[in-house]
């Protein structure tokens, strides 16, 4: 039921994704602030399919040369491609403090035992500025294979970017910067090089009092 209704291909399903800041309060407690978050969902067959976005509308927001989004999509499988619009929650006080931890956690599940590689490319004006590649092994839990990328440290580029964004006085200025800031995450089967999931992330700043928000779309080519 989750295919077409959540970030899932026939081989891999994203269960959770978050980017966060942990600020210690005292030796035993810390505050966790979520910049962006996709929580666990259990869509039913009665739920509608995700809305579709024509992938050609966003090609230029991501790397376009060899191995770019167009080439990846042509390689397929087409059901592995998604667009996430995040409304990031920046309503947090940031200080330069080495005890602060900026991290990303994500979880995936599959019916197959495999080794996955996650490539995360941060792009400015569609050009890659930094890439993180992580390899994860499966753990068999409750009849399926689970992959956890737990508390992966956010890179210096991203921490500086968030700080600079926070220093802008108005939300429209932040959104103007974010218009040219994107992230492309590609999860592949390390051994077969098959694309398992490809998620294109675009951003605005949240105006909500309820924290980070998001919409998920299927990427299609009509």
């Amino acid at each position: 039921s989750w295919q077409g209704r959540s970030i899932a291909s026939s081989k891999l399903r994203m269960l959770e994704f978050s980017a966060f800041l942990e600020q210690p309060q005292d030796p035993e407690n810390f505050n966790k602030h979520l910049f962006v978050h996709i929580g666990q969902s259990n869509p039913a067959y009665s739920d509608p399919y995700l809305e579709a976005v024509d992938i050609r509308q966003i090609y230029d927001k991501f790397p376009e040369k060899k191995g770019g989004l167009k080439e990846l999509f042509e390689k397929g499988p087409v059901n592995a491609f998604f667009l996430v619009k995040f409304w990031a929650d920046l309503s947090v006080n940031l200080q330069d403090d080495s005890s602060f931890f900026y991290g990303v956690s994500s979880q995936y599940e599959s019916s197959e035992n495999m080794i996955i590689t996650s490539s995360t490319k941060v792009c400015s004006f569609g050009k890659q500025v930094v890439e993180k590649v992580e390899t994860e092994y499966a753990r068999f839990e409750n009849g399926r294979y689970v992959f956890r990328i737990h508390r992966s440290p956010l890179c210096e580029y991203m921490i500086n970017f968030i700080h600079k964004l926070k220093h802008l006085p108005e939300k429209y200025m932040m959104n103007s910067v974010l218009e040219n800031f994107t992230i492309l995450q590609v999860v592949t089967n390390r051994d077969t090089l098959e694309t398992l999931l490809c998620v294109a992330y675009v951003f605005e700043v949240s105006t909500s009092e309820h924290g980070a928000q998001h919409h998920i779309y299927r990427l299609v080519k009509d």
């Binding site: 050609r56 409304w87 949240s206 909500s208 309820h210 998001h214 919409h215």
Partner: peptide
Amino acid sequence: SAPGHIPMRKRQLPASFWEEPRSS
């Protein structure tokens, strides 16, 4: 076929793309 430097607002995107949900 890429839209080039067209602002996101001028692209063919669903209306929901510009509507922040009240809660996720």
